[in-house]
């Protein structure tokens, strides 16, 4: 996904921008989440949906499409991943395997 490099994003009519960039999420079947599949360029959301259909679902790969203009996505950064996700590291008691279940006790 393009998250940091968004040149060509400001709709400046002087320069040929090839239109803004949209990230595409597709739900393949009912009951499962939408999944990121790639990106494309489109002038507006409606066109992004139509282009996404033609680019990413030519073989019935989806039943639903979300399009999000790339510049609106804020992503965490890999360099900070260590400290950013650190709070979860020392909380083993969040997992059921942390607890001892007495022998013979069932349904816990």
């Amino acid at each position: 996904m393009i998250l940091i490099f968004n040149k060509g994003m400001n709709t400046n009519m002087e320069k040929d921008t090839q239109w803004p960039l949209w990230e595409i999420f597709i739900q393949a079947n009912p009951g499962i989440p939408h999944k990121h599949v790639g990106s494309l360029h489109a002038a507006d959301a409606e066109m992004a949906l139509q282009n996404a259909r033609d680019v990413y679902t030519r073989r019935n790969e989806g039943i639903s499409i979300w399009v999000v203009e790339a510049r609106f996505i804020k992503a965490s950064s890999p360099e900070d991943a260590g400290s950013f996700f650190e709070p979860a590291n020392d909380k083993v008691y969040r997992h059921p395997t942390f607890y001892k279940v007495p022998d013979g006790v069932k349904y816990l």
Binding site: K15, T17, Q18, G38, L40, V55
Partner: peptide
């Protein structure tokens, strides 16, 4: 027609993948 349309799609997947490396579509073209 379907085959050629697929090739257009392949071009689109690849341009968008290349753009993740910080080069924009206008420059590529």
């Amino acid at each position: 027609l379907a085959k050629v349309q697929d090739e257009a799609g392949h071009g689109m997947y690849l341009y968008s993948a290349a753009e993740t490396l910080g080069i924009d579509r206008t420059t590529l073209l």
